[in-house]
Simulated assay, not measured.
Amino acid sequence: MDEGLSPTSTPDVLSGTRGRLGRIRLNRPRAINALTTDMVRAVRSELARFADAGVDAVWLDGAGERGLCAGGDVRAVRESVLAGGDEATTFFEAEYAMDAAVATSPVPVVAWMDGVVMGGGVGVSVHAGLRLVTERTRLAMPETLIGFFPDVGALWWLARCPGRTGTRLALTGATVGGADAVALGLADRLVASDRAAELVERAAAGERLTDVGLGAAEVSSPVLAEASVLDPLLAGDDAAAILRRLGVGEHPLAAATARELAARSPWAVSVTLAALRRAERMSTLAEVLDQDRRLAPRMAAHPDFAEGVRAQLVDRDRTPRWTHAGLDDVDPAEVEALFP
């Protein structure tokens, strides 16, 4: 298939039109399409252009075989913070504006969420009009592992997952597959990964794709099956109390979840829980994105972010030295001060 995609304002985002379908492709395959400021601006610009282009839908995907998008380029954000620059704030503002544009696009966005969909990759897809996952999808918001919080408006959706499954995903950064994503409300349909070209052609011919694949009532979700064990342990606003309950739980799953939680930044886990509980009370995605805008620069400036990115992505020693020894050492007043 001749895809007819061309560079936009950056070669890292390609765009084109095929029949009744607009196309946007993230194009940094060696970095699993990790987002830069230029990329998020280009995606937003192309969405605005397609709104006036007479297309029926916009298909958004990622180049390469590894996935849609591994997130934002957090190493670049870290370098900016360490250098005392304001590029990090610029990136967050542009990224969240793109996420809002996906959510409010007058032309429905079809997000092809194949392979890795993490962090900023969730932001560029979970707000789309039609979210298609596959058997290869690996979706997560793993930010607490790098001293950050699940941003990009993801808390809007995690706060509305069944039971406390969203709390589990937000605090531990657990990775879920395509079936879980549909069952939890983070995607709409589960389709085979080899159907992308077929679906593009059908959409280009003007067909609406809302009924392709399997919906929530037709998939089996391992995460939902585990909710009966974990949900009672994940209740409440006290992260330290949650960890204690998980640690003394009799089920092996509780112990495993406790180990995952204990490996995350205590500061980031505490802030994430507070932000998630606030998101549960918010009535619009815009409110959650506003909360993200306030929190992101402050979280990026905290020592745990630079240390978490160092440990996971720079030195890769996987031994971060967090500011707090544990969740009991995080002052609730310090967390509360982040929220006006």
Rank of each mutant, 00 (worst) to 15 (best):
Val330Ala: 06
Ala174Gly: 15
Glu287Ser: 03
Val191Asn: 08
Gly85Leu: 09
Pro29Phe: 07
Asp317Glu: 15
Gly147Arg: 10
Arg78Glu: 03
Glu135Trp: 01
Asp56His: 07
Glu287Asn: 02
Ile32Glu: 00
Asp317Lys: 08
Ala183Gln: 12
Arg41Met: 11
Ala187Ser: 13
Thr36Asp: 13
Ala333Phe: 01
Arg244Thr: 15
Thr165Ile: 07
Gly177Leu: 08
Gly213Arg: 02
Ala225Gln: 09
Asp151Trp: 02
Val116Leu: 15
Asp52Tyr: 04
Glu336Leu: 09
Asp237Val: 10
Thr104Val: 08
Ala57Met: 08
Leu21Met: 04
Phe339Pro: 06
Arg66Trp: 09
Ala154Arg: 06
Gly249Ala: 01
Trp112Cys: 07
Gly236Ile: 07
Ala203Tyr: 15
Val309Lys: 04
Val330Gln: 00
Glu143Val: 09
Pro162Ile: 03
Pro108Leu: 08
Leu295Pro: 04
Arg28Glu: 06
Arg18Phe: 12
Met39Pro: 04
His251Ser: 14
Val55Gly: 13
Ala239Arg: 10
Met282Gln: 15
Glu95Gly: 11
Leu289Phe: 02
Pro332Gly: 02
Gln312Arg: 14
Val219Cys: 06
Val335Gly: 04
Ala128His: 06
Leu289Tyr: 00
Asp194Tyr: 04
Val288Tyr: 00
Val117Gln: 08
Ala97Leu: 11
Ala159Val: 02
Trp322Tyr: 08
Val102Gly: 05
Ala311Thr: 07
Ala241Asn: 05
Gly166Thr: 03
Ala197Lys: 09
Glu336Gly: 11
Arg30Pro: 00
Gly120Leu: 12
Val77His: 00
Glu3Pro: 11
Met282Lys: 07
His324Met: 07
His127Ile: 02
Arg30Lys: 05
Leu261Gly: 01
Leu21Ala: 15
Ala204Lys: 12
Thr319Trp: 11
Arg264Met: 13
Asn27Leu: 04
Glu79Ser: 00
Thr8Phe: 05
His251Phe: 04
Ser45Ile: 08
Ala279Gln: 00
Gly54Asp: 07
Asp180Ile: 07
Met113Asn: 11
Leu169Tyr: 12
Arg18Pro: 10
Leu253Thr: 13
Glu198Arg: 10
Thr175Leu: 12
Pro340Leu: 00
Val200Leu: 08
Ala154Leu: 11
Ala53Phe: 06
Arg278Thr: 05
Val107Lys: 10
Arg28Cys: 07
Gly72Cys: 04
Val122Asp: 06
Gly249Tyr: 02
Asp56Tyr: 09
Gly173Lys: 07
Ala192His: 13
Val248Arg: 05
Val13Leu: 13
Val309Glu: 00
Val40Leu: 10
Thr167Pro: 04
Ala100Arg: 12
Gln312Ile: 15
Val40Ser: 07
Gly16Ile: 13
Ala203Glu: 14
Asp315Ser: 15
Arg259Leu: 12
Gly72Tyr: 05
Ala181Arg: 14
Thr10Leu: 12
Val309Ile: 14
Gly120Cys: 06
Phe305Ala: 09
Val102Thr: 02
Arg44Asp: 09
Arg131Ala: 01
Pro11Glu: 03
Ala279Gly: 02
Pro252Leu: 03
Ala140Ile: 13
Ala337Cys: 03
Ala94Asn: 09
Thr272Gly: 03
Ser9Cys: 11
Glu336Gln: 12
Leu199Thr: 10
Arg195Glu: 15
Leu190Tyr: 15
Ser220Tyr: 01
Pro252Thr: 08
Val74Pro: 02
Val330Pro: 00
Arg18Lys: 13
Ser125Tyr: 12
Arg75Trp: 05
Arg208Thr: 15
Ile32Leu: 09
Gly71Gln: 10
Ala128Tyr: 12
Met98Ser: 03
Leu47His: 08
Ala83Lys: 06
